[in-house]
Design a protein around this nucleic acid. Sequence first.
DNA 1: CGACGTGTTGATAGCTTTCAATGGGTGTGG
DNA 2: CCACACCCATTGAAAGCTATCAACACGTCG
Lengths: 263, 263
Amino acid sequence: MDSQKNFQTFMRSAFGLEPGGRLGAQLEGICTSLTVPRADRADLDLSCDRVLYLASGSAKLVASASRGREQIVAFQFAGDLVSIPSGGHHRYTLTALADAALLAFPAREFFDCIAGEQESARVLIERLRTALHRCRDKAVGLGQKNAQERVASFLLAMAERIGVSDGNSCLLELPMSRRDVGDSLGLTIETVSRQITSLRETGLIATQGRSEITLLDMAGLARCSGGHEAARAQTRKLPQFDLDQGDGGDAALAMAATGGFAS
Amino acid sequence: MDSQKNFQTFMRSAFGLEPGGRLGAQLEGICTSLTVPRADRADLDLSCDRVLYLASGSAKLVASASRGREQIVAFQFAGDLVSIPSGGHHRYTLTALADAALLAFPAREFFDCIAGEQESARVLIERLRTALHRCRDKAVGLGQKNAQERVASFLLAMAERIGVSDGNSCLLELPMSRRDVGDSLGLTIETVSRQITSLRETGLIATQGRSEITLLDMAGLARCSGGHEAARAQTRKLPQFDLDQGDGGDAALAMAATGGFAS
DNA sequence: CGACGTGTTGATAGCTTTCAATGGGTGTGG
DNA sequence: CCACACCCATTGAAAGCTATCAACACGTCG
């Protein structure tokens, strides 16, 4: 396997560094390379917290609650960094959606290394902050949105990351199943399916096969997604001024402190 | 006001540094001090992302969606750092639950300063990671738990942060209203109230007045909270083995990557 | 003491889940 | 290349849970 190559990609794309330096040597020393076939779990040594770099492929990060319930906390694509804790209330696993190659680091050592180099620390902090803000957005969606809004938000968020823009519309090749979508949105597969059907009947999307979706009306989807800046509703019960035009997108996922990085 | 004193507290408690050094001078130069009376919003200049340090008091971080819906993304207590983005899908505001004193920094400059000093960078990264993991936990709760589980989880999480242990039981003086609890859990005040009543009737908690709650049976609450390591349920439909004893707590909030801090 | 804000309790409606059955897509083997 | 089997997705009907609407109780404050 080309773990060497993956490592170089990691250094350059994740931190904009050449592998040659001191930092590169340190990181390479604590790095483990592994490949994960589609639908398999990454076999991680969770004796300590880990940081993963997804060199290629895509994956889902899943939290398991009791009674077999699973919440997909994030979908990961090539180039992403993932922080995986070893302890805590829920157990987390990373499962490949498409054959994946990844690099694994022990978290403490990884952060120690990065913290020692200003530019890398800056980049890492920024990434963590983005992840936090995305997670907050997810929390808002799970806490406040209905099924239709969740699915619309999901499609827009995916378009943001892996959509192929085609003039006015956007082509989406979903790497995950309906179950995965449901586990990510806190809905059942049936509900997800019904909402997709509904969006298709409304003319906002079109579907080809079971994994291809074309977003025909991004602005319309944004209106259905229930997010975006509050339409200056003063009172909680105010009717619904429909968003002030909406900002079209979804992309730059909203950002603000979640759980604040507390003491 | 004693903004001077707050800044010193910030340097020492947040980063374990003496205010004298180069870093201290830099941070002090970009720092703004403000006080926020109970129930007021922090009046922040959101022309750019901000980082806040809560020197004293407590606060809620609120995200506003459309139709006046509000999701409390986190409760913050003295000593917490909070990241507040200026753009994005939802608008975030910080509102004091008790008279608060806080320091505000422009995010970019703040992180640039911190990244330049290894130990501080390490601390900041760790805090961000904790915040991310807490946020993921919140997402799991919002996505997978029912009302009873959410309220039980909430009480345990609060006990973790501001509870006063009293032998077997734990005394909790909630600084927030039922509405705040609801907005945090994605439930209505009525549902929160009903669940608290239910827990009281079960003997797991006792209430005094409208804001005092005594947790009488932490283990029992943990069993009600639906979280914790999956009870090795192999199949999604397996009945429910009730957790394997449960790990009592809630505290060390689960940890794993949310949204992964992506590219 | 009375008024307001907050919390509790009750009844009903709405949305999502659950349970069940059908349809479609994909992949393998003949 | 077609047939079959299996998995996944879709659709329908009913149940369950939470939101909503409404009324009442409690506590605080003027």
